Simulated scan of single mutants.
Amino acid sequence: MSVIGTKVKPFKAQAYKNGDFLEVSEENFKGQWTVLCFYPADFTFVCPTELEDLQNEYSNLKELGAEVYSCSTDTHFTHKAWHESSEAIGKVTYTMIGDPSLTLPSHFEVLRVEQGLADRGTFIIDPDGVVQVAEVHAEGIGRDASGLIDKLKAAQYVYKNPGEVCPAKWKEGSETLKPSIDLVGKI
């Protein structure tokens, strides 16, 4: 079953951000755009490259009104230790959710139950708490955070302009489509 179009289910988890521990819940995702990136585990190989890349796009995503969260099944304590020991992760200023309860990866259908780890899943959630974008990669395939910018802009455009859709390779300011019977077979 796809999580697209579904509301974020209730959860509570501990997180690490900028030297502090905090509690995060589905309420943190409401009233703003949210980018939620799951990854398998702290102290690994591809994960720090992805989280550092996400940090490099963090200010651009914030300018677009989105808050960023990463999440693994490690604890918030492990996130702190990783943040303090890794040059790449030490740059991260967004919230790092620790979910050893496996609740969030289960809700977003990225949990590898046998291993207790999350797949590489990226989700864009609208201000109403509804999932608009979902992308999942195999463990060995790292993501490129720069692609989130266009996806977020397209999701925001469609959210603000019901009845219009963004075609492939859509960029902000480009033409959109208004689905109708008149377009059938003409594109």
Rank of each mutant, 00 (worst) to 15 (best):
Y39W: 12
Q156F: 07
A41S: 14
V3N: 12
V133W: 07
G65E: 04
G147N: 13
V133I: 15
K171P: 00
K91P: 05
L61F: 11
K171G: 04
T49S: 14
P100R: 10
P179F: 03
K80T: 03
S180Q: 06
Y39Q: 06
S106H: 04
T78H: 02
Q132G: 02
A13E: 04
G173D: 10
S72D: 11
L111D: 01
Q132W: 00
K151Q: 14
R112N: 12
D20L: 08
F38V: 10
E87C: 02
T34A: 03
C37N: 15
G5I: 11
F43K: 11
Y159D: 08
L183F: 02
N60H: 13
F123S: 02
T103C: 00
F77N: 09
V110L: 07
K7C: 01
P10N: 09
D99N: 06
A13K: 02
G65P: 03
I141E: 14
L54V: 06
E135K: 13
D99W: 09
N28M: 02
L117D: 01
A66T: 11
I125K: 01
G129N: 05
N60W: 04
P10S: 07
N60Y: 08
G142E: 07
L111F: 03
G173A: 09
K186A: 09
K91D: 04
P127W: 07
I181V: 14
E50Y: 06
H107C: 01
L117G: 05
G19T: 07
P40S: 06
K9P: 00
I181Q: 13
Q156K: 15
M96D: 02
H137I: 00
P167R: 07
K171C: 09
V113E: 15
I149C: 05
T34L: 03
G31N: 04
N18Y: 01
S59A: 15
L148E: 05
F21C: 03
D126M: 03
D119F: 06
I4V: 14
E172V: 07
E52L: 15
S146A: 14
L152Y: 04
K80S: 08
P162D: 08
L104Q: 04
G129A: 03
F77R: 10
S70H: 06
W82I: 08
S2F: 02
F123C: 07
